[in-house]
Design a protein around this nucleic acid. Structure first.
Lengths: 188, 188
DNA sequence: CCTACCGATCGGTAGG
DNA sequence: CCTACCGATCGGTAGG
């Protein structure tokens, strides 16, 4: 990917985040990039390529992250801590792309949407493995594994709705809070 | 609101949920309703009215719910249980509208979007009050109140991403699981 | 990277 | 609730 193409992709991600993929026009992207709409097409195949790249590049980052965590033989509590940390880091380091990844993957074409959902399931599976490990090791209480993994991911994913890079909480503070919340709960 | 208008609203909510507000055309709605596009305009002012009603009717349901909970003088753990239960019930009873409410409020016009955000903040405040109560009563550990409220709401809201009315978990089972998770955490 | 332009579709209106 | 139609905008192409 050329520098120019990367720049266009990042401009598009910013607009997609702000207005949503569907509500962002090729003309919007061209205007932000400072060129005529037709000029974009010497860099990209079409608007959908920008969405596609965003969704799949993020999916790969997440998958690589969880695989690294599950390859290391720590106990489940440590693994969970690492997984939460990795997830929060990816989200906060690519907040524009993360919002698009979460919200607009539905607008991928049918084939790519299926592929995307598979990657997503694989990622969720990584969290299920951690929860199951925790139960087997006697560290976690005997919860519904699927439900627990989904709930953990809920708390992690909602970050994109309120995260502010200039806010008072750093990424690692957010991650630490989330791990505590997930592991210990509110109860005193 | 006439019966016919209500029917149109519900048809629109189903389509908005499936494809998103922006990607749903007035023609899509008309087709699902079995009329010509122009005929819709004797019932509605425009496409945005359908979004507006969906967002604000849901917002009011949530607000009424949390106010009822906070008006009753139980302890914070009981209040939290009730608030989670109410939230899950509203979501699962109006799953189409809930998805739209969560995802597409950004497409309200500027004035209404501000009003919507205020209602949302008021709702979040209701959860903050519960968490603060819990700390004051010595039931909850001394967490960051804003962060905790947000994290609870994250787990609750993500339901719309996976809830299936025909799935094996009923709404009250989901609510019970979520309360346990939030209150007790994973730790054994 | 531009000018010029395409057919398709958009939300919505006039008039009945 | 319909037919007929509006101007605006859509994603994208031809040709240079």
């Amino acid at each position: 990917m050329t520098e120019r193409k990367l720049a266009i992709l990042q401009i598009a991600q910013g607009l997609f985040m702000e207005k949503g993929y569907t509500a962002t026009s090729v003309r919007d992207i061209a205007k932000s990039a400072g060129v005529e709409p037709a000029s974009l097409y010497s860099h990209i195949n079409g608007k959908e390529e920008l969405l596609d790249r965003t969704c799949f590049e993020m999916a790969e980052k997440f998958l690589t992250g969880i695989e690294e965590v599950n390859d290391i033989y720590f106990d489940a509590a440590q693994k969970l801590k690492m997984a939460v940390d990795t997830h929060v880091n990816i989200l906060t380091n690519h907040i524009d792309a993360a919002v698009v990844f979460q919200r607009d993957w539905r607008h991928l074409n049918e084939v790519r949407r299926s592929e995307f959902i598979e990657l997503r399931n694989a990622y969720e599976d990584g969290f299920r493995v951690i929860v199951q490990n925790g139960i087997d090791e006697g560290l976690f209480s005997e919860v519904d594994v699927k439900f627990a993994a989904l709930t953990i991911l809920s708390s992690l994913n909602w970050i994109v709705e309120w995260y502010d890079p200039k806010g008072k909480l750093t990424a690692s503070e957010i991650a630490a809070n989330l791990f505590n919340f997930t592991f210990t709960g509110l109860k005193k």
